[in-house]
Computed example of a mutant assay.
Amino acid sequence: MTSSSEMTYFIIGGNRGIGFNLVKILSGSTDNTVITSIRGSPSLPKNKQVVDLAKIRKNIHIVQLDLTEDESIGNIANEIKKTPSFSGIDVFIACSGISDSYYEVLKTPKSVWLKHYNTNALGPILTLQKVYPLLLLKKARKIFFISSVAGSINGFVPISVSAYGQSKAALNYAVKALSFELKPEGFTVVAFHPGMVSTDMGQSGIDHFKEKNIDVSGIDIITPEESASALVNVFGKILPGDNGKFFNYDGSESVF
């Protein structure tokens, strides 16, 4: 008999940073099954951390996904269904993204805008389109997007991150729209700000701001482990009444 506490998570981008630490924490419970996507095949991964962990923890299953490739997105549902004893997804977590746009709006090249939009906004949405039927197989029906306060309009952060901020604003809009559209089917759709995190991308941004003499001393910088641990704590407290909300990693509510 299946325990009511058993949960299946699908995490986009579990090969590094916050995503890897989410996989590590959630797979620490044998009640959980964690299916995570990586770029590249498991035999030729771009980062070996999660592949090595999956060799130790048999409740981690790895699938290939490139958010910028239509064919890869088109195959994702079938890849997930091939995982052992698959019966559906309880929680969808989109954690993959890029942040490499420290330009002013009038100086941002078109290629940078498109790269960030495709990876940070469109890729997760198109992936959800394919995975949605697998979420309908379970009753939990939770959809979590790792966003950023950089995409907040009402809580605008006065730092030039052009394409990154715009892509996260687009993602935030999708969260609000999905929360309205999927509510009748019992879904809870939420966005999360993970904090200013010292991932490879985050540290690159911190270094850039320091070089430009932009004061970030008032911003708490946390490790990927700290961010993921705090996020998992908040994930566990999300209720249907939180549908359509935007939370900070510490559990406080943010603004779109």
Rank of each mutant, 00 (worst) to 15 (best):
L137Y: 01
L135G: 05
P224A: 07
A191M: 08
I11Q: 11
I146F: 04
I219M: 07
R16A: 09
Q49Y: 12
S198F: 08
E181N: 11
I159Y: 15
Y173F: 15
L44I: 13
G155D: 14
L126Y: 07
P184K: 08
G241Q: 08
F209P: 00
T199L: 13
V234K: 02
K81F: 03
I89C: 12
L114S: 07
G88W: 12
I98N: 08
I146T: 09
M201F: 07
E185R: 09
I98Y: 03
F246N: 09
G251H: 04
V190E: 11
K210R: 08
T83Q: 15
F144E: 02
D100I: 00
G218C: 02
K212I: 00
S43Q: 15
K81H: 04
E226Y: 02
V157G: 12
F180L: 12
I35N: 10
V63I: 15
L171V: 07
D31V: 03
N233A: 05
C95N: 08
G251F: 04
K48R: 14
S227N: 02
A228P: 01
I238D: 02
F180K: 11
S217K: 08
P109N: 02
E211P: 00
G244R: 02
P224L: 06
N47S: 15
I98D: 02
R39C: 10
D215S: 02
S3I: 06
I60W: 12
I222Q: 03
D90T: 05
F247N: 01
I18T: 10
P184M: 07
S198N: 12
P240T: 01
S227D: 02
S179R: 08
S101L: 01
I11W: 12
T188S: 11
G40D: 15
N154L: 12
V149I: 14
Q129G: 03
E181G: 07
K24W: 04
S5A: 14
F235W: 00
F156D: 13
V175S: 09
K142G: 05
A54D: 10
L26T: 01
M7R: 15
L239G: 00
P133M: 04
G236N: 13
K210W: 00
S4I: 15
A170S: 14
S37I: 07
F10N: 13
Q129L: 09
Y9F: 12
G74R: 10
V255W: 13
I35G: 12
S152E: 10
N32K: 05
F246A: 07
D52T: 10
F246G: 07
K130I: 03
C95I: 00
K55Q: 14
I56A: 14
P109M: 03
